[in-house]
Design a protein around this nucleic acid. Structure first.
Lengths: 363, 363
DNA sequence: TTGAAAGCGCTAACAG
DNA sequence: CTGTTAGCGCTTTCAA
């Protein structure tokens, strides 16, 4: 029951040890036939290269680490898909850690990855309103590439995020195009993302003084039930006080609002139109398909990995030329949103039915 | 920026290399005075022990690896939460890999974990109907504890799963208790889990010949839209051919079916009752709260980690006593389901509203 | 492609 | 406590 080593594989395949090593690290230097031979031997033996030994001997980890605040948030799920796909494309593996909405755990995992000498780290911080990049880099002095996801910042460092302000503007402009006279906006702006979304809506409101915008700082992150209550309450207002367009800062709230409005006997979109704003397919589950933005997490994950790859190349170049990398530069990738106009704002798409609830199809 | 090694520390502190190693690994064997000396030297030099080298020289990681077929499947999400919590309780970190519904990638990640010398590996296989434990262990015989999740098997090895048969029986018995005369069952039994669920329903059907059970082998894994179409079709049948109770093999399909039935002008539960079967909170998003089973993934994840810990202890004991571990034994943890009877089968719970769509609250 | 060999930084085990 | 040494499994280099 001894461990299977590179020696065993070499013997099994009938080749030299160095050849096996080449299959692993420099595939281009090995003839396809030999390659097959070695690969088969590996499978037969269930060979798992000892990562510590590789690293110790001067190899490079082909692993990226991704620290998420909480799996199951739609955006995090999208990020992980995008990052996984892009990492694969560049020949990296992706390992994911779940911080369970706990900043300390997020840090701990980032540090674990750093200690593993991964080739790069992606961190999606909790992003409460006042988040700033940590003063002392989590990676210690080991200048491991690191990118913060879902964060817009002009501090030095690497960031990839959805353009939340643009999301808000897009939705608000849509409301105006649809002929809204009284727009109610709700959702608690607890996180940076939601605050930026709200600000985007506010900007459009200022540009259109003829339309009444009403901001309700209510509801929580993902409790659709809050949306239900608020929607119901809005629907029960006297007609002259009732909004004809409701924007929720998240899709989950919006979906709840639709049901709430319906439960009060009104129709969406005929009496009140409803739009979400964060492009979260997990919430697209009502009978009325929701107007919102296209999900952007996937793209944010991809861009994050691209930044990691880019940083790695910069480091490598720097080591070659001897010139140190300038660490005072801000690199911000911003993913542009697109409107997804659907039934809940009276836009009927060509799909056979407006019933689109393919759980996870857009993840 | 040359790397500081244990040698440098020893020289700086004026002690032997072995003493420095002892300070790190067996502090109790070092005199307090010497200790201070060494610690100071470490601080002065900014020494950081090379983890790869430590590991290579014979350490164990306090890390468990979890390989999931696809994040975003409700069950996988639940597993990751449960595993994370339980791992934390035992002082382990948990790293997650996403195989993206690809068997080869699942294998690859399991091997990566094995190569990282993790303390244990959890794998949730894709679980197509004919899954069996791999002949050649993925871990390369390095006897790393491994547990397969979501799998019922009587092969040697460790398995943790929800009792899918019991889930089916529970739902079917509920149908009979609710006075159903004609029960339609649908969902394609592509996976082991769904086949077992169907079998459980079938067993109850046999025991109750006075109730008509109709099995439609239709619909896919998570496309609620299929449920919509099927529900609509069933609702449009002539009254004497129309089922009064519909069981979907997954909650996503069931949620779709409810909307489909409603779109045909019938009422749930008054005209047709509907039940799901896999306890997936991500799908509990309709206006009518769904009868199904309590989500079990969380518990499966916990039990999986417990098995890992147990295996670890067995290995350690075996190494001590010299007696090898018996690897021909089957260890199967089976998590028992509970019925969650709600509005969709005419059971009205005490909750303020029957609108329960707290996305992810049960994850 | 082969075979041999150096060495990555550490742990554990040894005799003194 | 010291000083020394044998590996851990791998990558890289080199001559053949």
């Amino acid at each position: 029951m001894a461990k299977v080593t590179i020696q065993d594989v070499a013997r099994e395949a009938g080749v030299a040890l160095g050849t096996v090593s080449n299959v692993l690290n420099h595939p281009e230097k090995v003839k396809p036939a030999t390659m097959r031979l070695v690969r088969d031997a590996m499978d037969r033996l269930g060979y798992a290269p000892n990562q510590s030994a590789r690293l110790l001997a001067g190899g490079q980890q082909r692993i990226f680490g991704l620290v998420l605040p909480r799996l199951g948030h739609g955006f995090s799920l999208q990020i992980s898909s995008g990052a996984e796909a892009e990492a694969l494309r560049h020949g990296y593996d992706l390992l994911i850690a779940n911080a369970d909405d706990d900043d300390a755990r997020s840090d701990r995992y980032a540090r674990l990855f750093a200690g593993m000498q991964v080739a790069g780290i992606l961190v999606q911080p909790l992003a409460e309103r006042d988040w700033r990049p940590p003063a002392a880099p989590v990676t210690g002095d080991a200048n491991i590439p690191i990118v913060y996801l879902g964060i817009q910042s002009d501090e030095p460092g690497w960031f990839a995020a959805a353009d939340n302000g643009a999301q808000g503007r897009l939705i608000a402009e849509h409301a105006i195009e649809r002929g809204a006279h009284h727009v109610a906006v709700f959702g608690k702006a607890e996180t940076i993302r939601r605050a930026q979304r709200a600000a985007g809506i506010g900007a459009v409101a200022e540009d259109n003084p003829s339309v009444r915008f009403e901001f309700l700082d209510e509801g929580t992150w993902d409790r659709a039930h809050d949306g239900y209550e608020i929607g119901r309450r809005l629907a029960k207002r006297p007609v002259d006080e009732r909004p004809d367009f409701v924007i929720a800062l998240t899709d989950a709230l919006a979906t709840g609002a639709i049901t709430g409005i319906q439960s009060a006997g009104l129709s969406v979109p005929d009496d009140i139109m409803v739009a979400g704003g964060d492009g979260n397919p997990l919430a697209w589950t009502g009978g009325v398909s929701l107007t919102t933005v296209v999900p952007l997490g996937y793209e944010v994950g991809r861009r994050g990995v691209q930044s990691l790859v880019e940083q790695g190349e910069m480091e490598r170049r720097a080591r070659k030329t001897g010139k140190p990398v300038d660490r005072t530069v801000n690199h911000q990738a911003l993913v542009r949103p697109f409107l997804l106009a659907r039934t809940s704002t009276g836009v009927f798409t060509r799909s056979a039915s407006d019933y689109e609830m393919d759980l996870g199809a857009h993840l």
